[in-house]
Simulated assay, not measured.
Amino acid sequence: MRVAEAFQAAFGHEPEGTWHAPGRVNLIGEHTDYNNGFVLPFAVPWGVTTAVRRRTDGTVRLLSLQASGGPQVITELDRAQGWARYAAGVLWAFERAGHAVGGADIAIDGDVPQGAGLSSSAALEVSVATALNDLHGLGVSPIDLALLAQKAENDFVGMPCGIMDQAASALCEEGHALFLDCRSLGTRAVPLDLAAEGLELMIIDTGVHHELADGQYARRRADCEGAAERLGVESLRDVTDLAAALSVLEGDERKRTQHVVTENHRVEALIGLLRAGAAREIGALLNASHLSLRDQFEVSCPELDVAVESALRGGARGARMTGGGFGGSAIALVPAGGAGRVRQEVEQAYERHGWAAPRVFPEVTPAPGARRLT
């Protein structure tokens, strides 16, 4: 295995094992997680594989096969730089939770398209967390590993994400989407066999790389928290009378509330259609989600909008942006055998705008969550 070989070459000894955690794509339920709402992601076939060996001297050595230069040697976790902060943050979160994991040699190899909105950072965090949990015999549950990984990203890296990405990476099952109630942390595996209904899901990576920690994501979250405070509820999840809520809100807070409340309803409606064997009817919900993210939450961008619009012209039954926004990827629900036409339509639209062709991944099916490999 490539990561194990790189580990031995860099550190001079073999790892104690290798672990893999996947990225995710969100079928529906965007910007609802930090509002205590509902989400429906599934794990993608790409992720982060980590080779780890424990150390007794407290030092952490971190190597990424995707980063230039040699390993970062860290004697104090808060001195980690760049990508290494996501891994160092996991060790920090374990320590804060009372788990003395000490030092480690860690090599990381990832194939999640970076900047595509498929949660490469969560895959890295969960992969490292799963490895440390196994090696130290801590017995931390998958959902609690996800919470530790989220704490690392929130409080150590400084990105105020919700729990969805880490939970999806830790808990997803092959062939299923993951319904997650972000308040109770209750989960349910929802069968997602689109091929059985003559459908496939494709991912369109716009190539527009976003940096959610630049403040846009945090501003959207602040809008939601401000609206909830004005409405006298714990979170926007608790809004039951949308019309009444909108009548007392203005500006951005009004728009953010409209998106969150209706998006939660769309998650529940989509699950209902899947359970009824009506996957061919979920396209309208995907379309409505994109329009809401574009117009009410204002996290889309021209490249995402063109990807969605051209996919629909090419025959997709539904399409929407996925992930935090401001770039990244769109998903399209396509009749079996129709991916080629959709791809051609999207590529031609990009060419007309003078943009580089997007990366397209057809027939994406739900993969398993975090697990030990060797």
Rank of each mutant, 00 (worst) to 15 (best):
G325M: 03
G354N: 04
L304P: 14
S310D: 01
W355G: 02
E298I: 14
A357N: 02
S329G: 08
V334I: 15
Y350N: 02
L293I: 12
A356Q: 12
F297H: 13
Q296H: 14
V308R: 12
F297T: 08
A307Q: 12
V308D: 04
A278H: 11
L312T: 05
E281C: 04
L312Q: 11
R313H: 10
E298Q: 15
E347Y: 01
A276V: 09
M321W: 03
Y350E: 01
N287F: 03
F361E: 00
A307E: 11
L312P: 03
E298K: 11
G354F: 04
L333Q: 10
S289I: 10
V306D: 03
A319S: 15
R343H: 01
C301D: 10
E281P: 04
G315D: 05
S329T: 04
F326S: 02
A330W: 05
L274I: 14
R343D: 08
W355N: 01
S300L: 09
A336N: 01
L333N: 09
A278I: 03
G327Y: 04
R352M: 05
A330C: 15
V342H: 02
F361P: 00
R341P: 00
N287Q: 09
A276Q: 12
E303S: 15
S289Y: 13
E347W: 01
V299A: 15
P302H: 12
A307I: 11
E298S: 14
L312K: 08
S310A: 15
G318W: 09
R313P: 01
V308F: 10
A278K: 14
G318R: 10
V299I: 14
L304Q: 10
A339Y: 06
R320H: 05
A311L: 09
V334Q: 03
I331Y: 06
L304F: 09
I331V: 13
Q348K: 07
A316H: 07
L291A: 15
L285I: 06
E298N: 13
G354I: 03
R275W: 05
D295T: 13
G328L: 05
H353L: 08
L291P: 07
A288R: 15
Q348M: 06
V342P: 02
S310G: 03
A316F: 04
G327S: 02
G283Q: 11
D305K: 15
L293T: 11
P335V: 04
E309Q: 15
G337R: 03
G314R: 10
E347L: 07
G354V: 07
A278F: 01
S292P: 12
G315H: 08
R280F: 03
R294S: 14
E281T: 04
V299P: 10
L293M: 15
A278P: 02
S329W: 06
E347F: 02
V342D: 00
V360G: 00
E309Y: 08
G338F: 03
R313C: 11
G325A: 09
S329L: 05
H290V: 13
G325W: 07
V360C: 06
R341Q: 08
N287T: 14
V299Y: 11
R352S: 08
R294I: 05
E345L: 01
L333P: 07
S300G: 12
G337Q: 07
A284Q: 13
R317W: 13
V308P: 11
H290M: 10
P335A: 04
F361W: 06
R359A: 13
V360K: 00
G324C: 04
